[in-house]
Design a protein around this nucleic acid. Structure first.
Lengths: 219, 219
DNA sequence: CGGGGCGCTGTGAGTCCGCTGAGAACCTGT
DNA sequence: ACAGGTTCTCAGCGGACTCACAGCGCCCCG
């Protein structure tokens, strides 16, 4: 279980990490909103512990942006405020639970475990096309029920195809969105290579080539 | 934003409606599958919330029939079942998302908004003339429902005709716009050749020759 | 009815595009 | 340090595509 703790008070952060590591979690620390957001975007965490009062980007903002990007990692908000409106705010923005400082470590642990247990609830929808299934929550991909192992890049590419399913996607667009936001510095041939990898693993008849334009999911 | 809620449990239906109205949606209720299907057919809804267990016609059936009728309104299925197979079934039948009872209202709202956001992905309108259909998003071309494969140049030419087809288009203009912006260095005969290709693939009676002036779409 | 010009089409050569195998550079965990 | 996996580049191949050319048919004119 991998956790991300976003907390600007260094002492509290270290203490949390020490405790959670002792309880069997792998813990990464982020000291402010921006670095926390970027870390959470990687999508490798099972849950995020998120302070509300953060320098730069507030915890509200972080969870709001994550949800806007279809990132449904379980988020527990932690704040010194304790009014009912604050709680409602946090939950509205997409947090899954809310804890007020000062809190008891045992309580935190219990709520965290409950959060992880019921993680299966706020799950992003499974993406499908034909007999290809991709579960963004678990990053599992199956073809006709059989599991398929994809490298990170292959996974991102397939997910992009599934999200922009039936329309034609150009190689340039893929380089922009799957590779680098800059999109420059990469050869469109790279896309061809990775489409080739995907076809080899998923079988033919999943990704169509539209000559002169790009690629499209087969229907 | 207009929503259709198909739910036979009157209490849950009313509660959902109350919440959604408070969040700014316009909500219609349908108490069973048949009336839900008929309401959804009107095509005036931005999304449909569809219970699986319904008297008369199940939610599976409803979404299946809608899709069979080329109605692609976003559908979120709601069910008490939560096995993985049920999810797969719902998605296979054409639902866009799946929620299991009991669900948290905040989660429903977030997923609903994500669904609407995803759907509002602006799509260029489909171009048609007679029984020729060209979809700029998918780059698919059909004649009387049958798919036709076009080369890039043929596709560009047809798209230009469909966009400016109601008037006469000269060969020089086509060389300018479809071929090279410079328009020089090409033989007007090239246009004749490609119009020939298109006629062969689309059948006669699609592109008229206006002798001495150019071409025009038949109407 | 005859002629000229415009448009149509079959042929073929050169070019372009996308696919693939091989391999270098890099990262990661052991 | 090493092994395995991953990312990306490169070069070559095969097929699709583009376009010029030239001959033919047809339309419209006198």
């Amino acid at each position: 279980m991998r956790l991300l703790v976003v907390e600007d008070e260094a002492r509290l952060g270290r203490a949390l990490k020490r405790g959670l590591v002792a309880d069997g979690f792998t813990v990464d620390l982020a000291p402010d909103g921006v670095s926390g957001l970027n870390a959470a975007r990687d999508g490798q965490y099972d849950a995020v512990l998120l302070d509300v009062m953060l320098p730069g980007l507030s915890g509200y903002e972080v969870v709001k942006r994550l949800r806007a990007e279809d990132n449904w990692v379980p988020v527990m908000m932690v704040s010194a405020k304790d009014g009912p409106y604050d709680q409602a705010d946090g939950l509205d923005y997409g947090a899954d639970d809310y804890l007020t400082k000062p809190f008891d470590y045992v309580v935190l642990l219990a709520r965290l475990r409950a959060l992880l247990r019921r993680q299966s609830d706020p799950r992003p929808p499974v993406l499908t096309s034909g007999d290809v299934r991709l579960d963004p929550a678990t990053r599992e991909v199956t073809v006709a029920g059989g599991a398929v192992a994809l490298s990170p890049r292959e996974y991102e590419l397939l997910e992009f195809f599934l999200r922009h399913g039936d329309r034609v996607v150009t190689k340039i667009e893929l380089l922009d969105r799957v590779w680098d936001a800059r999109g420059v510095g990469y050869d469109p041939n790279t896309v061809e290579v990775y489409v080739g990898y995907l076809r080899r693993k998923l079988g033919p008849g999943v990704i169509d080539t539209v000559r002169g334009a790009g690629y499209r999911l087969a229907r």
